[in-house]
Design a protein around this nucleic acid. Sequence first.
DNA 1: CATGAATGAGACTTCATTCAT
DNA 2: TATGAATGAAGTCTCATTCAT
Lengths: 214, 214, 214, 214
Amino acid sequence: MLPPLPLPDTATPPLTRGHKKRERTRRGLVDAALRLIARKEVGEIALLEVATEAAVSNGTIYNYFRTREEVLEAVGIAMAAEFSDAISDLSADVSCGAQRLAIGVRMFLCRAAVDHQWANALLRIIHFDQAMRSRLATHVLGDLREGLRSGMFCYEDEGVALDLVLSCTTGAMRSIVDGRAVEGHDVQVTKMVLRALGVSLAKASKIAAKPLPV
Amino acid sequence: MLPPLPLPDTATPPLTRGHKKRERTRRGLVDAALRLIARKEVGEIALLEVATEAAVSNGTIYNYFRTREEVLEAVGIAMAAEFSDAISDLSADVSCGAQRLAIGVRMFLCRAAVDHQWANALLRIIHFDQAMRSRLATHVLGDLREGLRSGMFCYEDEGVALDLVLSCTTGAMRSIVDGRAVEGHDVQVTKMVLRALGVSLAKASKIAAKPLPV
Amino acid sequence: MLPPLPLPDTATPPLTRGHKKRERTRRGLVDAALRLIARKEVGEIALLEVATEAAVSNGTIYNYFRTREEVLEAVGIAMAAEFSDAISDLSADVSCGAQRLAIGVRMFLCRAAVDHQWANALLRIIHFDQAMRSRLATHVLGDLREGLRSGMFCYEDEGVALDLVLSCTTGAMRSIVDGRAVEGHDVQVTKMVLRALGVSLAKASKIAAKPLPV
Amino acid sequence: MLPPLPLPDTATPPLTRGHKKRERTRRGLVDAALRLIARKEVGEIALLEVATEAAVSNGTIYNYFRTREEVLEAVGIAMAAEFSDAISDLSADVSCGAQRLAIGVRMFLCRAAVDHQWANALLRIIHFDQAMRSRLATHVLGDLREGLRSGMFCYEDEGVALDLVLSCTTGAMRSIVDGRAVEGHDVQVTKMVLRALGVSLAKASKIAAKPLPV
DNA sequence: CATGAATGAGACTTCATTCAT
DNA sequence: TATGAATGAAGTCTCATTCAT
C-alpha cells in the first residue's frame, strides 16, 4: 500500500495545491490518532478526541474517512509505513542475517526505552491490526532464512521461529514500557533470542553486543 | 470445565438456604463473561450481553457486582484460580525445574490447541488484568530458580528470563488460536525456550519431548 | 393514635402477641425512614436503604406497605402524631393565646437548634406532605383566635396570619439548620412575629422573653 | 454576521455563524426545564422530558451541559438573572427603603397570583439552589439597611430580619399557588412584614397600600 | 471542504416491586 | 412472616454519524 514508487501516475495521487492541503489535514488526523493510541486503549478513543487533538472539527473527520474503522486502519498503515522505512534503512549495509536480526531487535527495544509513547502505540496496533504482524514478519523472515542458509541458525519451522522473535521483542517492549527494564536489556534479550534460534553462547554474545549502526 | 473436585467445600459462607442458589447464579455470570471474552475483546462486551448469556435479567448482575469493573475483575480471578490449581497439579511429582517448566509450557499450548475459547479468554485477560501476569509469574519463577540452581539454566536476569518464557508461551498460544499451529508445535516452542535459557540442544530436545503426565 | 383505651374492640387494633411484634417492626421501618429523611431529600431515599437502616430485608417492607408512597405517608403521619403530643403538652397550663403562640414558636426553634436532624426531617416532610401543614395549623389557629378575641392580636385575615406564623417559624428553622442561627434567635423571631400580629413592641418583648415551661 | 456594529459588543463569543442558533437552542432547553419545574419537583424531572419539551433529541442536551446538575444550575441562573432585572427596574425611582421593600414583596406576590407556573418554578428553585437565596438577599438587604438608617425600621439582627422577609414572601407565594389567596393578599402580607420590622400600624398601612409602579 | 449542531442507538446503573422459599 | 434473588423499566450519559450552513 502507498507504494512510494516513482512510477507512471496511475490516478492515485495527482498533486495539485488543494490536494497537498488535503493530504496535510489527513496526516494531521492520523498523527493525532497515533498520539492518542500511545495514551489509551484503542477501544477507548473517541473520534471527537481525535478531531480535537488534530485541531479540527469533528465533522471534518468524515471528509477523509467513511467510518471509525477506517480511521484506525489508516493509523495502522501509517505506523507500518514508518517501520518499513526504519528497518530497511538500518539493515542496508549488513549482510549477515543473524546480525541484521540482532540489530532489528535491539533497535526496537532501544527506541521503546527512549520513546514509551511510540512503543505503546506499536504494541496496541499490533494487538489490534492483523496486517501489522505480517508487515513485520516480512522483514524478519528474510533474516531468518539468510541465517539458516548460512548455518548460523538452526530451527525446525520458520513460522515458529518467527513467532519467537516477534513475541520476545514485543514482550520485552512491554516490559520496558511498564518500567521493568534492566541494565543492558536489549542485549540480554537479543542474546536469548539468538540462542533460541540455535546460535552458540559465544557467538550470540558477540553478535548481540556489537555496536549499533548510527 | 474442570468439574470441581469432590473435596471439602473451602468457601466461607454457605450458611443460608439461598446461598447455594446465589453462588450458582454468580458462577453463571462469571462463566457467561468468560464465554464472551473468548469471542470478543474485553472492551466490546456489554453487560447486557453477559446477562443474556447467563440467562438472567440485566439488573441481576448488580445483585452480585457493584460495577462493570468488578465483573471483569471477577472473571480474571476465576480464571487465575483455575490456573493455580491446574499448574500445581501437573508439577506435583516433578522435581527438575527445567522439566517442570517444559511441562507447564507444553500444557498451556496443548490446551490452547484443544480449546481455542479458553486460550482466547486467557490471552485477553492477561492483556487486561495486570494481576494475572504476576500470578503466572510466581509459578514460572520457581522453576527458573530451580533450574538455575541445578546448573541446567544459565541466564543473567531472571526478570528477562521470565519475560521470555511468558512471551513465547502466550505468543505461541496466539499463533495456535489464529490457526498458525504446526505439527509438534508445543515441543518446538518448548525446545526453543529451553535453549534460550541456556540448555544445550541435546538436553533441550530430550526434556521437551518427554511425554506429558496424564 | 394507638389509644390504649380499654374500650370495646372496634376491630382496629386487636392486641395479640404477633400483633405487637408486627407493630414493632412497622415502627422500626418508619423510624428508619425518619432517620434517613433527616439526612437526605425525600426523593433520594431508596427503600433498600430504609430496610437496611431498619435492619430488615428489603422484601419485608412490602409486608407492611403496599407501595413507596405508603411508606412516606406513614412517616408524615408519625411525625405529625409526635407534634400533636408535644404541642398539646406544652400549652396545657397557659391560657393567653399570644403567650401560647410564643411558647410554641420558641420551642420549635429551640428544638431545631438542639436537634438538627429532627428539624431537617420536619422541614422536608412539611414540604412533601400537605397533610402536615393543616395539622400544625390547627394548633396555631386556636392561639391566633384567642389572641384576637382578647385584643392582643390585630390582623385582617386569619389565613394570612397563619401563613406568617408558619412561614417565619419554618424559615427560622431552616436558618438554624443551615448554621445561620444567632444569639437569642428564638426570642428575636418570636418578637417579630408577635409585632407582625399587632402586638406592641413593649408587650412583644415581654411575652417573647418569658422563660419557657420546663 | 454582525461585524460592522459601531457599538462594543458586550457578549463574549458571538463570532461564528452558528452561534445564534446555538444560543437559541440553549435557551430553548433552559426554558423547557423551567416549564417542567413549574409542574413537578426538581428531582422528578428526567432529562429526556426536558429534551422532548424543548423539541430536541436527548443527546442534544449534552452538547450544552456536561451533566444533569449543570442543566438545573443553568435554570437557577436563568431565573435569577430575570429577577435581578425585574427588581432593579422596579425600584429605580424609589429612594425609601421601606417603600422599596414593600414594592418588592408585593410585586412578587402579584406576579405569583397571575403566573402560578412562574411562582412554582421560583419556589422550587429557591428550595433547590442555594445561590438563589443569596441573590435575592442582596436586594433585600439594601432596603433593610436603608430603612434602618432612616429610622423607619427597627430590628436587632439583619440576618433574622432578612429571613423574615424572605420566609413571609415565599410562604405567601406558596399560599397563592395552593389557592389560599385572599382579597388584597399582597397588601396584607406586606403590612405585616413592615410591622414585624418595626413600622407603626399607620405607616405600614400607608406604605403597603401605595399603588405599584407601572 | 470545514464546521459543529443534531441525532439516536446503546451503554451503564439504580431501584421499586414481585415471588419462591 | 421474613428473606433476598430476580426482574425490568427508567434514567443518565457517550459517541459514531449525518447534514445544513
